[in-house]
């Protein structure tokens, strides 16, 4: 089986400072990978390198494209990469405001990716937008409201709908539940889990919340100071941590 995404030796430096160093892994179709670690451990740098927002200093990020098989996204041309990022890829930002157009209605936000890949039938675009709003549990009556009138949790769900409408195969998520209160987090996680299962999505989730990866991720990668210190099946890593830092991380979780 060809991995959907194959990351080999990705390194990114900020001057003398290391963002992430020599990260390698394979992600197979339908798999959800969690990346955990404390602030500044290079999680987001790695995610941005994989999603094409940052150019890694070394290494390759090979994606199994629909048309041309495995291609290195680091060396492919910018138009091709941008095309990937609005068709086969999705990126869910931590802050919904970064991923949404706040001046455009919810329907327009969801429809943007459809229009970007050539949809030109208003009725169809709108039907699809309404369908997706319902799938992320937003009342269809809010389709013409701007995201500024939405709560934080709704904005985050709208961002997810906007990203998934073109049926991507790989979703990058940067702290998707950050800044939300626990009950909203729980519903969002439930929703995400359902969507990932139903659509057979592959996902890479960056978070510092171990509960999130426990619920969503099949595999887990623990990062510290830009390096991967431990990786394996989620339950295995969380229940039987081997590396000292992972042990610290797991034992630091507050038990209610």
């Amino acid at each position: 089986m060809t991995p959907l995404l194959s990351v080999q030796g990705v390194t990114k430096r900020y001057g003398a400072h290391i963002g992430c160093a020599d990260v390698s892994f394979d992600l197979y179709p339908g798999e959800v990978m969690g990346i955990v670690g404390e602030s500044g451990s290079g999680k987001s740098t790695l995610l941005n390198c994989m999603a094409g927002h940052l150019r890694p200093d070394a290494g390759s990020v090979v994606f199994d494209t629909r048309g041309h098989g495995p291609r290195d996204t680091v060396t492919m041309s910018e138009p091709e990469r941008r095309m990937l990022s609005r068709t086969d890829w999705a990126f869910v930002h931590q802050h919904a405001r970064d991923g949404l157009r706040m001046g455009v209605s919810a329907g327009g936000n969801v429809g943007e990716r459809l229009m970007a890949v050539g949809a030109r039938h208003y009725g169809d675009i709108r039907d699809k937008a309404v369908d997706w709003l319902e799938r992320v549990e937003i009342d269809a009556g809010r389709v013409d409201d701007r995201p500024t009138t939405f709560s934080g949790g709704m904005q985050q769900r709208l961002q997810i709908a906007r990203n998934l409408v073109t049926g991507p195969r790989l979703v990058f998520m940067d702290e998707p539940t950050g800044g939300l209160d626990v009950s909203v987090q729980a519903r969002l996680l439930d929703l995400l889990r359902g969507l990932v299962r139903d659509m057979g999505l592959s996902a890479i989730i960056v978070t510092h919340d171990l509960a999130v990866v426990r619920l969503l991720a099949d595999r887990l990668m623990v990062m510290k100071d830009g390096h991967v210190v431990e990786q394996g099946l989620t339950d295995q890593v969380l229940d039987d941590p081997q590396h000292a830092y992972t042990q610290l991380l797991v034992s630091s979780v507050l038990q209610v």
Binding site: R86, R101, V104, S105, G107, G108, G111, E112, R113, M115, A116, V117, R120, Y122, I125, R126
Partner: peptide, 9 residues
């Protein structure tokens, strides 16, 4: 695509 978002709005 963005131009059509304006018309959609």
């Amino acid at each position: 695509g963005l131009m059509h978002v304006k018309l959609y709005e």
